[in-house]
Design a protein around this nucleic acid. Structure first.
Lengths: 308, 308
DNA sequence: ACCTGAACACCGTTCAAGT
DNA sequence: ACCTGAACACCGTTCAAGT
C-alpha cells in the first residue's frame, strides 16, 4: 500500500501506468493532457506537468508534436528478431535523423543514439569520426531526399523558386536541418554544394558578371535558412517545455501583454498573429522580394532609381 | 633534468613557458605560430599544434582572433583590489558577453562564468533563473549598444537600410548574437522588439496593407540574421581548431580540391574566393535585392511582370 | 530565510585494457 | 589489430544542508 506521504504526482503516475498495463490505453493512444489531469485529479498544473514528465522519463509515454502525449510502443521483443542487424553508418544516421526529426537537435547525442541502437557509445566511433561528422552525414541523407531535377524548369525565376522551395521544404520536414547547415562549413557536405552548383547554373547566361552571380547564389539560400531558423526555435521551445505546459505559454502571454501595456510597442501590439504565424506566407513574401529585386536588376541593367 | 622519453611537445611547452617567465614574451605578445614552431624545433605540425594547445590549456596563452596566439594577462593580483565587488546581474552579464565575444557561444557556461567571477556555479542563480535567461540578458545589453535614432533618416529606404545595417554591425561585433537571436523567442527581449517596432513604423504610410507591412518587418531581419549566421560558423570553426591549426585547413582544402576534381561542381570550382569571403559585400547585395524588390512593389503597386 | 556545495543526470571523446 | 568499457573533463540544474 502507498504511504500517505506519497507525493500527489506519483499517485497520478501510477494511475496512468495502471491504465496502460490493463490495456485501457494502448500504444499510440493519447494520455490525459495536463489540463484534463488538473480537472480529473483536482491538482495544480505543476503537478500534472510533473506526472507527465515522469511517465515520459520512464519511457511509457512520449510527446508527439501536435498530437499531445501518447503511449509509447513497447520495447522491441528481442526473441522476434533473432540477431541485431550489423551496426552500419546507415543505421546510425537513420536513427539520428529520426531522433532529431521527432525531438529536435538536442536529442542527437552520441550516447543516446548508441543506446537506441543497443551498443556502447564508443562503437559509433568506428563508423563516424566525431559528432560533427555524424551531423554532416545526417545533412547528406536529408538533402538526398529531394534531388534537384535536371535540367529543371525553363527560366531563371522558376529555377530559383524551385531551389528555394526545395530547401524550404527540407527545413520544414527536418526541424534540425537549418541550424545544422548554418553550423557547418558547406564545403564538407557535397549534397549541399550540389544545391549551390545548381543555383549558379540557373543564374548563368543572364548577363550578370560572375561576382554578382556568386553573391546571388550565396545570398538566396542564406535568406531561406534565416527564415527556417525562426521556425526551428519556435518548435524547439514547444518541445522543451513539453506539449502540456500551457502554463508556460500563458505566463509568456502575460509578459508580452504587460510589455504591450507599457505603450512602447503600439505597432507590434497591433500585429495580426495569423500573419506572424503563417511561416509559409513569410517565406513566399521574402522570396518574392528577392526575386523581384533580381528581376528589376535584370530589366534595368542596374538597380532601379532610388526614390525614397 | 628531463627524462629522455619526455614527449617533444612538452619540450616546446617548457621552452615557451620559460620565455614568458623570463619576460622575453610579455602579456599581449605573439607567441610563435605553429608554422614557425615547426621550423624552429624541426617538429611536425601536429606536435606544434599540441604544444600550443597545452599552453592554452594552462591559461598562459590565448588565441586572439586575427592576431594569432598571444601571451595572456597574468591572473588578477588579489591584494591590489581589496574586496571583490558584489556579484550583480550586470557583472555576470558583462563577463558572459566578454567571454562570448572572445571565444564564441560555447564559451558561455554557467560554471565557467561563475569561476571567472570567483563564485560557485549556484551563486549565479540568485541573479538569473536559468542559462536561457542569462543569454537573453546578454542580448539585451548588446542591442542597447546601438540604439536606433528617433525619428531616423527621411525616407523608407534609408530607414530600412539603417536598421538592417545596425543589426548587421551588432552581429559582426558579437559573433554569438545571431545564433542567440534565432534560438530565442523574440517576445522575451524588449530591445529586439524595439527594432521590429521601429521597422514597422518605417513601413507605415507607404500604402502597403498591414499584412504586407508585417511580413516585410519580420522577413528583413531574418535575412540579415541568416547571413550573419554563415559568418558565425566560419568564426567558430576557426576558433574551435585554434588559430594555428593550418594543418586542418590544409586537409579541408585537399578534400575540397578532390571534390572539385570529380568535375561535379564546375561552377563552384570557378568561384572567386574573394567574393565568397567578402561577407559585407554579400550583405549589401542581399539588402539591395530585398529593398529593390520592395521598391518595385511600391512603384508598380504590384510585383513587376514576370518575364523569365 | 538566504545562500550555495554536493549530487544528479547528462555530455563528447581519450585512453588503455580487453579480445 | 580491432573493438569498446572506463575514465576524464566537462555541462545545467535540483536538492538539501549549511548559515
Amino acid at each position: 500500500m502507498t504511504k500517505g506521504t506519497e507525493p500527489p504526482y506519483l499517485r497520478i503516475v501510477s494511475a496512468i501506468r495502471d491504465r496502460i498495463a490493463r490495456g485501457e490505453l494502448r500504444p499510440g493512444d493519447r494520455v490525459p493532457s495536463t489540463r484534463s489531469i488538473t480537472r480529473e485529479w483536482g491538482v495544480a498544473m505543476a503537478t500534472a506537468t510533473k506526472a507527465l514528465a515522469e511517465l515520459r522519463r520512464e519511457g511509457l509515454v512520449e510527446a508527439r508534436r501536435g498530437a499531445g502525449t501518447v503511449v509509447s510502443a513497447p520495447p522491441q521483443p528481442p526473441p522476434d528478431r533473432p540477431a541485431e542487424p550489423a551496426l552500419t553508418l546507415q543505421r546510425i544516421v537513420a536513427t539520428a535523423v529520426a531522433a532529431a526529426d521527432a525531438e529536435g537537435t538536442k536529442a542527437v547525442s552520441m550516447r543516446r543514439i548508441a543506446a537506441e541502437l543497443g551498443v556502447g557509445p564508443m562503437s559509433l566511433y568506428r563508423h563516424v569520426a566525431s559528432k560533427d561528422e555524424l551531423v554532416r552525414e545526417m545533412m547528406r541523407v536529408a538533402f538526398l531526399e529531394r534531388p534537384l531535377p535536371e535540367p529543371g524548369p525553363p527560366g531563371w525565376r522558376a529555377k530559383l523558386e524551385l531551389v528555394c522551395r526545395t530547401q524550404w521544404e527540407l527545413y520544414l520536414r527536418h526541424p534540425w536541418l537549418a541550424s545544422a547547415v548554418s553550423m557547418t562549413r558547406p564545403q564538407l557536405v557535397p549534397e549541399a554544394m550540389a544545391h549551390t552548383e545548381w543555383t549558379l547554373r540557373a543564374l548563368d547566361g543572364l548577363g550578370l558578371d560572375p561576382d554578382e552571380i556568386a553573391r546571388e547564389a550565396l545570398t538566396l539560400p542564406s535568406m531561406v535558412r534565416g527564415l527556417a531558423l525562426s521556425r526551428e526555435s519556435e518548435a524547439e521551445a514547444e518541445e522543451a517545455t513539453g506539449v502540456g505546459a500551457e502554463q508556460w505559454w500563458r505566463s509568456l502571454d502575460d509578459q508580452v501583454r504587460a510589455l504591450y501595456a507599457t505603450g512602447r510597442f503600439p505597432m507590434l501590439a497591433g500585429l495580426d498573429s495569423e500573419i506572424v504565424d503563417d511561416i509559409d506566407g513569410l517565406f513566399e513574401h521574402a522570396l518574392t522580394r528577392n526575386l523581384d529585386g533580381l528581376q528589376a536588376r535584370l530589366e534595368h541593367g542596374t538597380a532601379p532609381a532610388r526614390r525614397p
